[in-house]
Amino acid sequence: MPEHENSRKVRDARAGFQKHVPAVLNLLAIAAVWLMLTEGGIVPNYMLPSPVAVVKAFVSDFPTLMYHSGVSLAEAILGLLIGIVLAFLIAVLMDRFITCRRALYPVMVVTQTIPTVAIAPILVLWMGFGMAPKITLVVITTFFPIAVGLLDGFSGVDQDAVDLMRSMGAGRRQIFLQIKLPSALGQFFSGLKISASYSVVGAVVAEWLGGFRGLGVYMTRVRKAYSFDKMFAVIILIVIISLLLIAAVNLLRRAVMPWERVQENRS
């Protein structure tokens, strides 16, 4: 039995690894083309820095980058957490009271149509140059996908399951906790994944438009100095941070929803 189990695990691991081969090859190919274009002198360095220069910039500026990353990440995560709480409250209210839904839904959609670059300076004007306007902007960009996910999850609940609960004498609160909330978890995490990827970009955009610390501020500085190698280094860093956040959401999902893995294994 254990041997069988082990060989299955090895096979699963190999299949998991093979799944990523095309993406890795593709990224390597892009890097190779980039290297050829720049080191081969086809594109001048002031238009596109070579990957070697970008790596050098990354290494030489590493402590500064880490300092600014810490600030941006803190804003992103705080904003995301507040966004989750806000989305949760809104979704529960809109699910419970149809009037709330009718009143809030259009407003919620409108908040998503306002361009962030336009609202960021206004937030700075209202809240100063500190973290507050950045966190607010992250909240505005992140709560929407989560709220919509939760709301869809709540309203997509199986009516028969609700009937079953009622036939057992369950009240509204128990139906919410035992049926609606767990049924909505999948959509909640799908929304959270999108929001996690928005959150860092949201924080950076807000910093770009006014502030003293964070990766956005760093970006405006290197742009003014025409240090495009550093600009590319920070772009890649932001990508990495966003991917790590998404990975964290996936890990959290696996921990919170262990039954999903069971279903995957069977299908």
Binding site: S167, G169, L185
Partner: peptide, 16 residues
């Protein structure tokens, strides 16, 4: 409700 137990058409076991 809550006095007689009722098994609906589907098994309705909660997947989670």
């Amino acid at each position: 409700p809550g006095k007689i137990s009722y098994m609906l058409q589907k098994d309705l076991l909660l997947p989670y």
